[in-house]
Amino acid sequence: MSARFIVGDRVRVRQAYPPGHVRTPYYVRGKEGVVSRMIAEHPNPEERAYGRDGLPPVPVYRVLFRQNDLWQDYQGPEGDTTELDIQEHWLGPLEEDGE
C-alpha cells in the first residue's frame, strides 16, 4: 500500500467516535496537525484487537499538533506541541473539511 501523505502535509484527524478499540485519542479527533515523520506500515491494531490479522498493513504517521490547536485554554507558550502516531485511515487532507 502506498502512503497517501508525506512529511510536511497538513492533515486533519477524522472527527469520528466509533465504538470498540481505537488508537486515535479523543483529544486529537477533528484537530489539524502536520505530518512530521513516516512510520513503517503496521497491521491495523483496531482489527487485531478482535483476533483478526489486521491486513493489509496500514501506513502510520507521526503527526505534530500545536497545543493551541488541541486545547482552547492552553496555558503554555505558543510553541508547545504534542506529537503522536496516527494511522492513515484516521487522517484526511485539511481541505476535505472545508477549510
Binding site: 488508537r23 488541541l70 507558550p77 508547545d80 506541541t81 506529537e83
Partner: peptide
C-alpha cells in the same frame, strides 16, 4: 494538556522560549 504544570511537580521548569513537546505513545 498541561505539560509544564506536570513538569513543575517533578521540579522541572522549562523556559518559555523552549518548546515543550509531548509524545503520546498511542500506537506501534
Amino acid at each position: 494538556r498541561e505539560p509544564r504544570a506536570v513538569l513543575k511537580e517533578f521540579g522541572t521548569e522549562i523556559p518559555d522560549d523552549v518548546e515543550v513537546r509531548v509524545h503520546d505513545s498511542t500506537a506501534e
